[in-house]
Design a protein around this nucleic acid. Sequence first.
DNA 1: ATTCATTGTTCTTAGCACGAACGGTACGCG
DNA 2: CGCGTACCGTTCGTGCTAAGAACAATGAAT
Lengths: 163, 163
Amino acid sequence: MRPSGVAFLLAQIGAHAAGRFADRVAGLGLTPAQVGVLRVVAQQPGLSQQALATELGVVPSKVVALVDALEHRGVLERRRDPGDRRLYALHLSVSATELLGQVREAVRQHDQELTSVLTPAERDQLAGLLRRIADAQGLKPGVHPGYRDRLGSGPEPERGPRD
Amino acid sequence: MRPSGVAFLLAQIGAHAAGRFADRVAGLGLTPAQVGVLRVVAQQPGLSQQALATELGVVPSKVVALVDALEHRGVLERRRDPGDRRLYALHLSVSATELLGQVREAVRQHDQELTSVLTPAERDQLAGLLRRIADAQGLKPGVHPGYRDRLGSGPEPERGPRD
DNA sequence: ATTCATTGTTCTTAGCACGAACGGTACGCG
DNA sequence: CGCGTACCGTTCGTGCTAAGAACAATGAAT
């Protein structure tokens, strides 16, 4: 049982990456799940909460809390769909543009820091291999099963030194 | 955005791999955390629960439940340390040998299935890149921050961008 | 001998995910 | 028009997991 197998390394690094990303967006006052909402709504404006739930693979009741937080923050708007007044039409507000830019920058830095030990060629190589695996495993781009939401507060298992 | 998106792919595939592994060892009646216990005790027989807790990066109270289950299953033994009767000396029982073999086989199959789309050379390449990342990020071999124990089947929360 | 630290355990508490139930709206059909 | 059914968003209750505090037993120190 060599813990140096590829699958274990993937799980280990993946959890680490997710945790670090959560820390990063926590600096922007966001959780990873909220970031996912922003991304989907940015790509498909006017979406309903139900559609958002199925898109993200999340229970509708959780979408309520996510949208609540983002709306209270002023980056997301619940407009009534004029055709069907049961549905909300989700739209990003104008003030969301700046936040979205900050999120993109955080993503860029996150990616950079994680692969800083690789050369650009190696990074592309790695991306290609991973994409092939993700594709073969039937993982859709943009969604993945759930990590924890808040991984930033309090003492946690074991984390690397360089902090 | 057209960056490599390596970090997101790692988190996505890592979560997927962890879930699949949990499913696999569930077939043996084990949780991933219990597998970790078996691995550590196999490598360092006679170690105490406290040492095991720090080694795995989990709370001592959780080690109690883990050891309880494995002991009740007959694969782990709590012997008293003759030098210090506060400590337990954890040892694998003889019947653990077969189970350990099954676990090793499950790990092998898991690794194989996950990387079945790659050639052996590519798999080695991937392993090398991942090891370098894990090393650079200060991840110790054999431990990784906590996933959930039972990551069953079905869609789950979400996170992450990918423009 | 007394006092303090350590080990393993139990108990309590907080947080989260999920399903069930509820008001409100739309649509079909007689 | 009236009625039943189906859908959306929301709230509530339940079960589960994780983490911290408190406790008995043992050892170490002065």
